[in-house]
Computed example of a mutant assay.
Amino acid sequence: MQDHPDASPVPADQASKPPLRVLIVDDEAPARTRLRDLLGDLAASHPTRISGMAANGVEALRLLEAEAADLVLADIRMPTMDGVELARHLARLPRPPAVIFVTAYDQYAVQAFELAAVDYLLKPVRAERLAAALGKVPQPRIPDAALAGLAPGERRHFSVSERGRILLLAVADVLYLRAELKYVTARTVEREYVLDESLVHLEEEFPQRFLRLHRNCLVARDAVQGVERVGEQDGVDAHWAVLIRDLGERLPVSRRQWPAVRQALGL
């Protein structure tokens, strides 16, 4: 890259700051290289250091376990985990990095990004636009509702914080979700995971995947092996329960929810 002799001097406030640690996430290698080179061109006015480059959101989260970043430049459309789902996971970190989306979307999508207060770069990325976006860092945490508006489809993973790490739990592996105090427990065949999310929000996000059994429990529809009537015992009235495949567990169904459960299961 050539130096520009007419480049403006480094502002005093920029010179006193350490370089931003930037993680570049794009499934196309040329796009990653272009962003890296543009950041190098802007180093005089916006000092940065590349903390890593990843081809999708899953790779990005793994890299962040090894080294934190101040800024993530994330493509929207990527295999395995796209940029929007990645941003939703990042937002749950104790110190979430700023996120700038890189996109080839048309003008209508760009307006949606602006309304959601999420910065964006249109491909092909131009140095002036990148410099303007860097000038907005650090950015506030992106509201999860705004991210849901950009990608109204279901997530493919839940974020689980364990021992300072972010674990990715595949939504398809969850057999049921149960509210316990201020957390939600997600049960898989192997074990339980604690989610920092509300049961109501999960029910709204996954209406076709999870079915409410009672006020504290959602079950994955494809995890239901059958139902049975549990008779009166120890003073407890008879009620219906669903049988969970691979676990042999029974989850009670409330009287209020039973008509909806029966209809959903085609009984």
Rank of each mutant, 00 (worst) to 15 (best):
Q2W: 11
H4R: 15
H4P: 06
H4C: 13
P5N: 12
P5L: 10
A7V: 13
A7C: 13
P11G: 11
A12Q: 11
Q14K: 12
A15N: 07
S16P: 01
K17M: 14
L20K: 08
L23N: 02
D26A: 10
D27I: 06
A31L: 07
R32E: 06
L35F: 01
L35Q: 06
R36V: 04
L38H: 03
L39H: 02
G40A: 13
D41R: 14
L42N: 08
L42P: 04
H46L: 10
P47W: 07
R49N: 09
A54H: 07
A60P: 02
L61N: 03
L61S: 05
L61M: 07
R62W: 02
L63M: 11
L64A: 02
L64H: 03
A66D: 13
E67F: 04
E67G: 09
L71D: 02
L73I: 01
A74S: 15
D75N: 09
I76Y: 00
M78H: 04
M81D: 00
M81R: 03
R88D: 04
A91F: 00
A98Y: 02
V99Q: 00
V99H: 09
F101D: 06
F101R: 03
Y108G: 09
A109V: 00
Q111M: 14
A117P: 03
L121Y: 00
K123H: 02
P124R: 08
P124H: 06
R126Y: 02
A127N: 11
E128D: 15
L134C: 02
L134H: 08
G135R: 09
P138H: 06
Q139H: 08
P143V: 01
A145D: 10
A146M: 06
L147E: 05
A148K: 14
G149V: 07
P152T: 07
E154K: 09
R156K: 12
R156A: 14
H157N: 07
S159L: 05
S161V: 13
S161T: 15
S161M: 15
E162D: 12
R163Y: 06
R163M: 12
R163A: 15
R165H: 12
I166R: 12
A170V: 05
D173P: 05
L175S: 04
Y176H: 10
L177K: 03
K182C: 03
T185A: 14
T188P: 00
V189T: 13
R191E: 12
Y193N: 07
V194L: 15
D196P: 04
L202S: 04
E205G: 05
F206C: 03
P207V: 05
Q208C: 12
R212C: 05
R212T: 01
L213E: 02
N216C: 11
A220W: 00
R221E: 00
R221L: 07
D222F: 03
Q225S: 13
Q225Y: 05
E228I: 08
R229M: 09
R229Q: 12
D234P: 10
D234Q: 15
V236Q: 10
A238R: 10
W240N: 10
V242K: 01
D246C: 11
L247K: 11
E249V: 13
P252Q: 09
R256I: 10
Q257E: 10
A264F: 00
A264Q: 09
L265W: 00
L265A: 01
G266K: 08
G266A: 08
